[in-house]
Design a protein around this nucleic acid. Structure first.
Lengths: 333, 333
DNA sequence: CTGAAAGCGCTTACAG
DNA sequence: CTGAAAGCGCTTACAG
């Protein structure tokens, strides 16, 4: 392996100068620069990143911890993260926990080991105290998740309002019995969407029957099961708000299996706006979360913190949007 | 920051011993071990990974280069990769090129810089000579892609046979005019699937009309467009083989828009077996690629090479499988 | 079983 | 604009 010494020797300069040229330090004469670059070229020299990382105490790498990379909502966030990471000269280490808390802890440990310069958490199953503790030491930003009452930098949408608007959309169409397929109530964002649903029902003076609320885990299968229960009621809802598009798609399958037409017999609105929402027929009405932008903003926030040029600990709330497609309409009769 | 010296001092041993204890070297007395561990605990010491990486000339990190992480086929491969990486103590650096060749080159450069110990390429837009060159120096395995006539370690399926079987399935149902929505012919795996289609047609003495073949880029939109052209013919095919599930889903949308029922009016078979194939109605018949297993095998192969315990340069061919669902049936009349 | 010492390959004050 | 020298925080032969 050729190293910097070899280059220095060939170019007749010190390693300090070689280092300066390669790091584009302007205080080197053009003549010397050329000489060094030529030597680099002749020897096919590549600086050793491991040495440089060590010396500079930075790997220019950031770990992103998420529950499931095959979930298209998260993979879109990751694409946003990666885009700005690349453009700002950083790398992203993948932390797919597959919903495993122990795995989450392992990834968080990478920042304690100084292996990465910062961390983006798109999942947070760990107790908030634990996360708060590391966040005092090291740049962390939460994407989608957040902790009430703490000032950890965060990029989210307003889940309560978004869920309220989804429900209101159904109310505006004339629905009065509206079922809610909830996300896991163990995580804030699941609770927030339920809160939004309740608010809308309350505002419109519609009774919230607990039998109209079914908890799922955001998957198609969970949506299917929840919908089956909802339809088994002797007074089934005429419209469904599902807290994720995948669950909404599961609900559509269940409705079809029961011989119901969407939206004529039952309206369905989802949440997220994943691509699959347009693969199905009819196309899914939903609440759009700007996943890619959540990624870009979170990464920009994090890198600003790492460079120390972040003004304060920001909490960004990005706009959501109702996307009208084909699965909602006015109720029969 | 507490460092190893502090621990050594507190435990009254040398840093060599601290290092041995932490790296679980067995040649340390139990008493000493306890003493060191206690000191580590008191000081809350974490070894600096950047220093350790540098010293050991290894980051225990592998970069995975792929065209698009939001594509569920690739994200499933990545999940497989990550699973074995985690279990074998490695990390994966994400290299989403978004189909950009320059980006691909940048990631490949990380191995030249010794930033990563190896690389998995699930895309290979770069000239094969370039990739072959790095593969001489450093552990690389190709996942899905391969280069004819070179011995770069590879994990793929037999795309030619898989495509032939897909086509044969349609022939067996009685179809004689079979359209093919091809992947990009600029990449081997696109060409291989076309080859399989042609073989099946030939074997069954069916004429291959060039108008029956439309090239797409694996996306839903491309499938939609290709299907529109196919249906515009004055003698349209009664069955379609699409080289990716996304294109098959696009073809289904196009058929519906034209008022055709799948499979009664036109049969469709896809390729990949992504989850979305079961979201749509009717559910998509397809060729299953074992994406997760491609990932696990590729990572195992790579890590074996890195540890130097790989016997030879292997080319693994994993089994595919026809998955019968609802989008294919016998032609009318 | 343990320690003293060298050294991994860079970068960075410091001095000139 | 350039170089000599120190040193980042570990690990690893080597010697005992």
């Amino acid at each position: 392996m050729t190293k910097m010494d070899d280059v220095a020797k060939l170019a007749n300069v010190s390693t300090a100068t070689v280092s300066r040229v390669l790091s584009k330090n302007p205080n080197v004469s053009l003549k010397t620069q050329r000489r060094v670059l030529e030597a680099v070229d002749i020897l096919g020299y590549k600086p050793n990143r491991l040495a440089s990382n060590f010396r500079k105490r930075s790997s220019k790498t950031v770990v992103v911890v998420l529950p499931d990379i095959t979930n298209s909502f998260f993979s879109k966030i990751v694409q946003g993260l990666e885009e700005v990471a690349q453009s700002r000269g950083y790398h992203v280490l993948l932390g797919d926990t597959r919903n495993n808390v122990e795995s989450e802890r392992n990834f968080i440990d990478l920042v304690n080991q100084k292996f990465v310069d910062g961390m983006i958490l798109a999942t947070a199953r760990l107790p908030k105290e634990e996360i708060l503790a590391v966040s005092q030491e090291i740049p962390i930003v939460l994407a989608c998740e957040y902790f009430d009452g703490f000032d950890i930098p965060t990029v989210t949408i307003d889940n309560v309002s978004a869920a309220r608007e989804a429900t209101q959309h159904l109310v505006n169409l004339g629905h009065r019995r509206i079922g809610f397929i909830s996300g896991p109530l163990s995580i804030v964002l699941g609770r927030d969407r339920l809160k939004g649903y309740r608010q809308a029902m309350l505002i419109n003076e519609l009774p919230v029957e607990e039998s109209l609320i079914q908890e799922g885990d955001f998957t198609v299968q969970a949506g299917y099961n929840a919908m089956m229960k909802l339809m088994a009621s002797n007074h089934p809802p005429s419209a469904i708000f599902a807290a994720s598009d995948e669950m909404a798609i599961g609900a559509m399958k269940a409705a079809r299996n029961k011989g119901l037409n969407v939206p004529e017999d039952v309206s369905i609105i989802g949440f997220d706006d994943i691509p699959a929402g347009t693969y199905v027929h009819p196309e899914l009405t939903t609440i759009r979360q700007p996943a890619f932008e959540i990624g870009t903003q979170a990464m920009n926030l994090l890198l600003d913190m790492i460079k120390g040029c972040a003004k304060e600990r920001k909490q960004l709330v990005l706009p959501h949007q109702v996307v009208l497609r084909e699965t909602t309409t006015s109720p029969r009769g």
